[in-house]
Design a protein around this nucleic acid. Structure first.
Length: 488
RNA sequence: GGGGGCGUAGCUCAGCCGGUAGAGCAGCGGCCUUUUAAGCCGUAGGUCGCAGGUUCGAGCCCUGCCGCCCUCACCA
């Protein structure tokens, strides 16, 4: 396993150990945040301070050497001067670029005016046995960046920044719902029956109970049980798992926000979504509501456009009746879509996706979806063929999905029964009877919402691939070779 | 699963028509007290993704495989 470890670094490590120095001390002098030092640097000139972090490449001038030290908040130049470091100087070469160090010294500037810490004391905090990637380009090979994200993160500051942004987005989403009196809850990830969406699940097994379990594809059915229980405003931000293809918009595990609010309908939830975006624009984007995503600009400042699902369908498919199977089949053939063995409702929706989705630059709310593709949504008062449901699209990408929740247990059971009857790989094999029972106890009228947090992050940070907002995207395991195959 | 692209030193990349494997950075040995992609001199570093094949000769051509990226399909 010494592959990639430079020999000279091992030699330096051995030299230090021989000299009685610990290359991996448990504790070193803690550093002050570099950003704090830089914020009022002029006033701090002459102060003795300690900073700690990773050392950059060293620029050597004989009796003077420069480097930069990076911590979580920023980077500061460090100068090592022979005359200031009588004991450290002879062994200065044992500490090199990419090592983690704690340095105490005096703040000052160089002749060129660069803020600099003039080191008086240097302590190795951790010897790095592998060098940093190339200083100018960083790590660019995408495969390496994903497989060794830890290197990507320290070598490419903009990557650190992107994930700091993700953290901020999640925090502000949480803050928004919190401020509306929603309770944050956690529901089962291991589920005996999967439901709440349409996707193939990951399957696992509990040994002690000898029970088949699924990793959740959505938390929906559990969250709505909480509405029955009187928790009138709840939300969950958590991982869901879908055993589907991988693409720039799909990772097998991703983060979903779901929220449910009693005594609200989908119109109220639409307002909540706009409120959420207004909040994110203000906090995360600091007022700059236009984001650049995949070669285009999008203004995320509400209010958003609205359009009926069936109107959009009719616009792009003139003369085609969504509810008439024969006419949808003809249109699907025209579009070279798969027709055989596809449920009529799914086929009609496939036509919608093929013809409409790409045109939804948005942000736009598409609303009033047909019942057949909305098994958990309440029917519209005016037209029982469609439901009170909307999806939010930006850049042709589905960001959110919401509806007035179906709370009629009899209608719900019927729809679940139909689903199971037309079961495919993505339908639960059985009805979640307990969920129907819960509805029988009475669930208040409510509006629910689901938002893909990863896609939201993509949009807000302009990342064109979901892998750029997921720290450790799923990759195929590399074939173990020889001794590397030995595991713990 | 289909189509396209890529894989060469630790990193970033060259490598022409098939003819001894290259550079920069990082490293190592020197010189240098104000650099910040420091500079200069010297030095070391390779299973060219893997396995076959064609050829006098393969990083380059052919076949298969592995991995990654893009794209289409799939994925409400």
């Amino acid at each position: 396993m010494t592959d990639g470890i430079a020999n000279d670094r091992l030699e330096k490590l051995a030299a230090m150990q021989q000299a009685g120095q610990d290359p991996y001390p448990a504790r070193v002098a803690k550093g002050q945040p570099i950003a704090d030092l830089l914020s009022d640097f002029a006033a701090r000139t002459g102060q003795i301070v300690t900073i700690a972090g990773r050392l950059g490449q060293i620029r050597d001038f004989g009796k003077l050497r420069f480097s930069h030290l990076t911590d979580r908040t920023g980077a500061l130049q460090v100068a090592f001067q022979r005359d200031r470091l009588p004991t450290f100087w002879p062994e200065r070469k044992l500490i090199e670029g990419n090592d983690l160090v704690s340095i105490t010294g005096e703040l000052g500037t160089t002749q060129k005016g660069e803020p600099t810490l003039w080191a008086n004391e240097v302590t190795l905090a951790c010897k790095a046995l592998r060098p940093a990637p190339e200083k100018w380009h960083g790590l660019t090979d995408t495969e390496q960046r994903y497989r060794m994200r830890y290197v990507d993160l320290f070598a490419n500051p903009e990557v650190r920044q992107a994930f700091a942004q993700r953290s901020k987005i999640v925090r502000e989403v949480r803050h928004y719902f919190d401020s509306l009196g929603y309770l944050e809850v956690e529901t089962p990830i291991l589920q005996p029956i999967f439901g709440g969406a349409s996707a193939r699940p990951f399957v696992t097994h509990h040994n002690a109970l000898d029970m088949k379990l699924y990793l959740r594809i959505a938390p929906e059915l559990y969250l709505k049980r909480l509405l029955v229980g009187g928790m009138e405003r709840v939300f969950e931000i958590g991982r869901v798992f879908r055993n589907e293809g991988i693409s720039t918009r799909h990772n097998p595990e991703f983060t979903m926000l779901e929220s449910y609010e009693a005594w609200a309908d989908y119109r109220d939830i639409m307002a909540r979504v706009e409120g959420l975006f207004a909040h994110l624009v203000q906090t995360v984007l600091v007022g700059k509501s236009v984001v650049h995503f995949r070669e285009r600009d999008y203004d995320l400042k509400p209010p958003f456009q609205k359009a009926r699902y069936l109107d959009l369908f009719a616009q792009q498919n003139p003369g085609v009746d969504w509810f008439d199977h024969a006419s949808c089949v003809a249109r699907a053939r025209e579009l070279h879509l798969k027709v055989d063995g596809i449920e009529p409702a799914k086929l009609a929706n496939d036509v919608f996706e093929a013809t409409v989705e790409d045109t939804l630059l948005g942000p736009i709310f598409v609303h009033d979806y047909p019942v057949a593709i909305s098994p958990l949504a309440k029917r519209m008062r005016e037209d029982a063929r469609v439901t009170e449901r909307f999806e939010l699209f930006v850049a042709g990408m589905e960001i959110g999905n919401a509806f007035s929740e179906l709370n009629d247990p009899i209608d719900q059971e019927q729809r679940l029964r139909e689903q199971v009857a037309h079961k495919d790989d993505e339908t639960p094999g059985e009805i979640d009877v307990d969920y129907v029972t819960a509805l029988e106890f009475g669930m208040p009228p409510a509006g629910g919402l689901g938002i893909g947090i990863d896609r939201l992050c993509m949009l807000l940070s302009g990342a064109s691939s979901i892998r750029d907002v997921v720290l450790f995207p799923l990759l195929r395991r590399l074939e173990a070779t020889g001794e590397e195959s030995k595991g713990p």
